[in-house]
Design a protein around this nucleic acid. Sequence first.
DNA 1: TTTCGTGCAAACCCTTTGCATTTGC
DNA 2: GCAAATGCAAAGGGTTTGCACGAAA
Lengths: 140, 140
Amino acid sequence: MHQSGDIVKKLAEQGYRLTPQRMMTISAIEKSDGHISAEEIYAQVITKYPQVNISTVYRTLELLKKLGLVTETDFGEGRVRYHPAGKGHHHHLVCQDCGAIIDLGEAVLAPLKNDLLREYGFSADLRHLAIFGRCVNCNK
Amino acid sequence: MHQSGDIVKKLAEQGYRLTPQRMMTISAIEKSDGHISAEEIYAQVITKYPQVNISTVYRTLELLKKLGLVTETDFGEGRVRYHPAGKGHHHHLVCQDCGAIIDLGEAVLAPLKNDLLREYGFSADLRHLAIFGRCVNCNK
DNA sequence: TTTCGTGCAAACCCTTTGCATTTGC
DNA sequence: GCAAATGCAAAGGGTTTGCACGAAA
């Protein structure tokens, strides 16, 4: 299992500086159980460190993406959300009516992934895929 | 089967005005076999009708979406692409390496759609879904 | 004629960038 | 000390909006 501090450790290992801005950005991402946007990270960091700039948050996110430490999911909101890569992958059902987000284990899409590989030679990256539609309640 | 003019007909039926700007926007969408972006529609319309404004294209697209006459696909380019709803649905495999887009029949995702409905009561809208990954060639 | 649609320009949102300054190591 | 990272402010890309003018029915 992965524990808190993983991301910081990897940054340090690779020779990146552990600035307070980076630490707090990472902490916000790790604390968020679900998915967090750049704005939300910024809002959280600024309460403890009022002089941060949102561009620093974006730069940190880009670094973490590059290093494969966080992944992005697009929920079709016009902005992207971030998730620690170490926390395991999952997929999401996004209700277009009520906005509910239902988490889906990796297993559910495993058959699809296999089909695509077998039939098309296509290696699908389904990490944090968002599937849109209507949830049970809104479907009634 | 659907034929050219479907969209125009439906607009008229619902009492919307058939302005040249709308006709040409619709024509651009219907002519494009694949998926077309707002900018591309605009570029096409402006050659025949130089005074159009891109905001009119956007307003037309919004109207057509509202009426269910076009659907959108997000290929992760930071912009959305449009497709006539009447032309039948399909899905896409988008190669993150070479940018290739492989079309996928509706049948391939039918099992997934059924699974989601049965197991989660979730009615997935998979029209023009884009799945990211690596195509056969880039996978070697 | 009268409501609907358009052009224009400005604003919008999220994200990125150039540059001078600061800071971790 | 010095490269790396930050803050600031401005620009960027795609999209939306307010308002007065123009045109479809």
